[in-house]
Design a protein around this nucleic acid. Structure first.
Ligand SMILES: [Mn+2]
Ligand SMILES: [Mn+2]
Ligand SMILES: [Zn+2]
Ligand SMILES: [Zn+2]
Lengths: 141, 141
DNA sequence: TCAATTTTAATAAATATTATCAAAAAATAA
DNA sequence: TTATTTTTTGATAATATTTATTAAAATTGA
């Protein structure tokens, strides 16, 4: 069980002039803990120790935090949109079998050659395939 | 006005054992013509010369054709899912100003080094930024 | 503590997608 | 061509998802 640094989460909100509320801290702490979450997973987890939080509050806060650059939105084929804490660029490996999402540290400078620096705002790179764990399971069958 | 090769579109459906219907041919011809379309754009265009086609028919056929590998689904931030005819790998440039989508022929072998060939099924690469046309308009202001 | 401002919860409203099913159309065989 | 089988369509009901509304509650800074 990871210890949550609430002071850090508060500072994220403060920097963007968003008020610190228990709801927002809880959403952020879950996303920090799980890495990549969609609205339903969030709602499910939140109901465990915060049963009275409204689904609308989650939707509203997620979109506010995306707009303010606190969260990064990741759209994935055949899955609901996932959210993660904004971080340095990294790609994602998505297992089409178990749906798990892995962060990938890939250097993409080789594909950005030839682009005007100023014209590129962000890059999304997703690699779909079978993860190691699923690969092993398949071999056993 | 592009001449549409219906025989070609029919062969696409035949290969997948999907029956050839005017509705399917019309959907395919629009996607071929426009390149990348979402459900609403399709419905709008279809109503022009096919006013009686049901929205449910469009949804159903799009998902059938995605399942059969005829269409490729492209999920884009802040936009509805776009569909295109399945083609060789290419990346997409998405203008965050005018929302236009451009095909990009980028060699991604440099980012797939280190991956087990067998474990990678597909790759999605999206580059968000300001397109040339919008760049020029900005400079005029 | 007080007051201004923002956020929340509940839920209504609006959008978006999928399911149902009888009628129509497509493919195939006779 | 016609009959038969199978698939698809259109209409619309049912679900699912997302956004809007608003009074009450919470946050924050003075
Ligand atoms: Mn990530
Ligand atoms: Mn394309
Ligand atoms: Zn897996
Ligand atoms: Zn543009």
């Amino acid at each position: 069980m990871e210890v949550i640094d609430y002071a850090y989460l508060e500072s994220i909100l403060n920097k963007k002039n968003l008020k610190v509320t228990p709801q927002r801290l809880h959403i952020l702490s879950l996303i920090k803990q799980f890495g990549h979450m969609d609205i339903d997973e969030l709602y499910l987890q939140i109901k465990k120790n915060y049963p009275y939080m409204s689904l609308a509050t989650i939707y509203k806060n997620i979109s506010v935090m995306v707009e303010n650059g606190i969260l990064n939105e990741i759209k994935i084929a055949q899955q609901k949109t996932k959210y993660e804490l904004l971080a340095d660029f990294h790609a994602h490996f998505i297992c089409t079998n178990c749906k798990k999402i892995e962060d990938l540290d890939i250097d993409i400078s080789c594909i950005l050659k030839g682009f005007d620096q100023a014209s590129v705002q962000s890059v999304q790179l997703q690699i779909y395939g079978i993860c190691n764990a699923c690969q092993k399971k398949k071999n056993l069958i």
